[in-house]
């Protein structure tokens, strides 16, 4: 980094200020004709990369059951107390499953701790960033809204395997 200039170090042209202003104006003028970054959202949707942390979802296996074993670690680690899990017994090999799994999306801060702590890769952050509710009770997502077929979150799981 070049040494910071003090007022006494300035050249006469710089002291006059006007050439510098002209330079600045030239820069902004140039950028007026550069391509625009704006994405016109409702028509053009942003498709986030796998590293994106959208709303957390539960992974649904091909068989239709959730991967989750209701261990409650996500609920424990959740810094905003957004997750509520109630376990119950199942005859499947995994022994327990969440009879109730609720995430309060108003509390969720999308930190991804739940995903990080999950021993089963059962809760992952999706690419869904469009969360709209009309009242607070609607913001509590139950299993019906949280379960997502594994196909839809494959790239996130892949990402986690590589970088977690």
């Amino acid at each position: 980094m070049p040494e910071k200039k003090r007022e006494k170090d300035l050249t006469i042209a710089e002291k006059l200020y006007i050439p510098e202003i002209v330079k600045g104006l030239g820069l902004t003028l140039k950028s007026m004709f550069r391509p625009k970054f704006t994405m016109e959202y409702p028509e053009v949707k942003f498709i986030p990369p796998a590293s994106y942390r959208g709303r957390p979802v539960l992974v649904q296996e091909e068989s239709g059951t959730e991967r989750c074993v209701a261990c409650g670690l996500c609920s424990r680690v959740c810094p905003s107390l957004a997750i509520e899990v109630q376990a119950s017994e199942t005859s499947l090999e995994k022994e327990r499953y969440p009879v109730k799994f609720e995430i309060n999306m108003l509390r969720c801060i999308f930190c991804g701790f739940c995903e990080e702590v999950c021993p089963e890769e059962a809760i992952v952050m999706s690419k869904d960033y469009e969360l709209v509710f009309r009242d607070r009770s609607e913001a509590i997502y139950g299993k019906d809204k949280l379960m997502v077929p594994i196909r839809q979150v494959e790239d996130r799981i892949e990402f986690l395997r590589n970088f977690k």
């Binding site: 902004t28 950028s31 007026m32 004709f33 550069r34 391509p35 625009k36 970054f37 704006t38 016109e40």
Partner: peptide
């Protein structure tokens, strides 16, 4: 509009 262009945005549209 002009401020948007200078900042590589689209402005009101």
């Amino acid at each position: 509009k002009i401020s948007a262009w200078i900042q590589n945005r689209r402005g009101p549209n």
